[in-house]
Simulated scan of single mutants.
Amino acid sequence: MDQHLTLQAHLAAQGAETSCAAVIEALAAAARDLARLIAVAPLSDGNDGVAGFNSDGDGQKQLDLVADGLMREALRQAPVAGILSEEVDLPETVDALAPLCVAIDPLDGSANLENNVSVGTIFSIRPRGRDVVSSFFEPGTAQRAAGFFIYGPQTSLVLAIDRRVDLFVLHPSLREFVLAKTNVRIPQDTPEFAINASNRRHWNGAVRNYVDECLSGTAGPRGRDFNMRWIASLVAEAYRILIRGGVFLYPADLRPGYREGRLRLVYEAHPMALIMEWAGGAASNGRSRVLELSARSPHQRAPLMMGDARAVRDLDILHEGVEPLFESSDAPLFARRGLFR
C-alpha cells in the first residue's frame, strides 16, 4: 500500500480548497489518536457505564467525552469559525473571522463499544455565514465537504469533497490515511435493506408497506428476495451501502422522542446525505430531500432514508398521501422549511 497517496497528498493533487483541506487533515490527526484509544478501551478504567448526559438527555460514555475533546482541540488549530458538537449544548465560537464551521458527532455509536461493533466520527464542513450560529441553520446543500471515520477492522475515512466520494484507510505502519478507492459509487439495485424491525408496530403505513413488499420476496410486488440488515451503527450501515448497495431506514415513529426522527439533522443526516448523493445515491426523510432541509435548533432530529436512489424514490412515492405523525400543523418541523414539507 506504500504506493498509494496519503490524504494530504491526495487533497493537494486534487486542488482542494486550502482551508477545507486543513480542517480535514486536522480531523484525520485526531482520528488517528482516537482509533488508538478505542483499540485499548476495554483495558482502560472509566469506559463502562454513563459518565454524563448530553443536551438531549442521551447517556455519554467517558470515551464520548474524550473523543469530543480530541476533535474540538484539533479543530481549534484549523481555520474554523465555530464548532457544533453533539456533546455540547451550543456551538462554540473559535475564530469568528475564519471561513468555515464544522458540525461533528465525535463518537457515533458509542453504545456499541462494549460489543466490539464499528463506531465512528461524522463531520460536516460548511462556510461561515453572517455569524457562527446561523451557519448551522443553512440547508445541507451549503456543505463544502462531509465524511466519516469508521473504527472497525480497519480505520477508514469516507470523504465527500468536490462532488466525489473517496475512501482512505489508516496505514498501520505509516500512521497516515492513504487513498484506497476514488470516486466511490453505490452499487445499484442491491436487494438489501436495513431497519430495526422490532419497531414495526410504531411505523407509519408507508414504511410498513415498503418493508412488507421486500419481505414478500419473489412472490411480492418487487419480484425478488431481499436480505435484511441491522448493525445499529450509522457509520457501519453507510459504509456497507457504499460498498454493497441497498438502503437504510431510520424513520420517524410513534414512540415518545421519535416523532421527529432520531438522528440529528446537522451532524448526522446532512453529512450522510451529501455522501450518498455524491456517490450516486439519495437521502430523504420520506417527503423531502434531506439536503434541502434546514435546522431550527442545533440538535434537531430528523428521519433518514438513504442509499440506492431507486429505493429512496420508491419510499418517497409510498409516503405520498400518508399523513405525517404530527397532530398539529404548529409542530416545530411542520413549517415551510420543516422536515415534512
Rank of each mutant, 00 (worst) to 15 (best):
E25T: 14
S118T: 15
L11N: 07
R262Q: 11
A197F: 02
D58Y: 11
L304C: 08
R240T: 14
G245E: 02
P332D: 03
L242F: 02
Q8L: 09
V132S: 08
G321I: 05
C101L: 05
D95P: 06
L113M: 14
E176S: 12
D189K: 07
P99D: 05
G52S: 07
S124M: 05
A22D: 11
G15K: 01
M306G: 06
L318K: 09
G49C: 03
G261A: 05
P79T: 10
E138G: 07
L174K: 13
R185V: 14
P91T: 11
T93A: 13
M272L: 15
S284Y: 00
W230P: 03
N196I: 05
D316T: 09
P298I: 06
N199H: 13
R262T: 14
A21F: 01
D314S: 11
F53Y: 15
R240N: 12
A295Y: 01
F177P: 08
G49Q: 04
P42R: 02
F340K: 05
D58F: 10
R163H: 14
H319D: 11
H10N: 12
R264E: 09
A206M: 01
P187W: 00
A98W: 02
S85P: 10
H171A: 13
V184G: 06
R144N: 12
N116Q: 13
W278Y: 12
S233A: 05
L107I: 09
S55K: 06
P91W: 00
A206N: 04
H4T: 13
G52W: 01
R240D: 14
L90G: 04
T141G: 11
G281I: 03
L293W: 00
L27C: 09
I195A: 15
L11I: 10
I150E: 14
A145P: 06
L97E: 15
G140Q: 01
P91V: 09
R259M: 13
A81Q: 08
D162Q: 15
L97K: 12
L157F: 05
L242Q: 04
D89F: 04
I241E: 03
G82N: 08
R144I: 14
P106R: 02
P42L: 03
D48W: 02
P191I: 03
R164M: 09
P271M: 04
E320W: 02
Y250M: 13
I243T: 14
F326M: 09
I231M: 09
G281Q: 01
L34Y: 03
R224E: 11
V23G: 07
A29I: 07
A146V: 07
Y239S: 12
R164Q: 15
P153S: 13
Q188D: 10
A96G: 11
Q188P: 04
D330G: 12
F168C: 09
F248C: 12
G281C: 03
S233V: 06
P191T: 05
D89Y: 02
A51W: 03
V178C: 11
L215K: 08
L249R: 02
G205P: 02
A335H: 14
